[in-house]
Design a protein around this nucleic acid. Sequence first.
DNA 1: ACGAAAGTTGACGTTCACGTAAGTTGAACG
DNA 2: CGTTCAACTTACGTGAACGTCAACTTTCGT
Lengths: 134, 134
Amino acid sequence: MMTEKFLTIREMCDVFDVTARTLRFYESKELLFPVRQGQKRLFTKRDRARLKLILRAKRFGFSLEQVRQLLDLYHIDDQQQTQIRKTYEVACERLADMQRQRDELDAAISDLQEQMNWAEKIMQADENPKQAAE
Amino acid sequence: MMTEKFLTIREMCDVFDVTARTLRFYESKELLFPVRQGQKRLFTKRDRARLKLILRAKRFGFSLEQVRQLLDLYHIDDQQQTQIRKTYEVACERLADMQRQRDELDAAISDLQEQMNWAEKIMQADENPKQAAE
DNA sequence: ACGAAAGTTGACGTTCACGTAAGTTGAACG
DNA sequence: CGTTCAACTTACGTGAACGTCAACTTTCGT
């Protein structure tokens, strides 16, 4: 048994901490492609990988539409190879976005840390009030 | 003249590439506090700094409400010092969020770059088709 | 002094990303 | 066989973050 080839919608919800509605919504937006057994959805390993990336990218502030474009890169093998180059270019832009974002994030982290150091000093002073005045 | 102490709403729009509606909306949500000259808004240096941070944080996927909390750290001097500690704790969480996010972002960037290397190889092969078959 | 330009306040509309409720279907269990 | 339960579809509702339009007032140039 290789990690149970398929997951039900409920199992997906538990694993990824999302609602069933969300998974159906993502399917409707062509972000996920669960196979059907009767009318029930079964999520493949590929769906799990995609969902992981979706949730991650969301935390970076990407829209679902942007994520969909990004995801295209991860399943080129399914597609016509004629699309590779176009997809590659999209990926280049996304990558640049992400690198810019990381740089900004680094800056923001530094900023915040500085502010917090300053706040620490203030709080320190607040704990020993008027130490010099006596 | 020290960088023109105040900016009109239109100047703000041009500088930060946002709409007037957005600025008024941010004010209504207490993210910005432009002073009034008559009924016109004048944006201070502090508003400009705040807006910069707002737009930056938005790109990280923070909600405006989260941003508002974050911004509180940046104007503690205006507030009661009793609030410092609370604000400091909020900031700690945000900082942790941001660091986690950066780690994930790094991972995502690596992933994407790997995929792109793979795509490059495919494209390379596509340029010289069946080189080995002849 | 007057008309255009810029700014203001409502108030309603829109898009995204789901939430939620109502009714249906299919497998499963006592 | 009835019912219970999970999953399904359809459809309307919701909060966040603005867009857009209407109807003022204020200011500025000629």
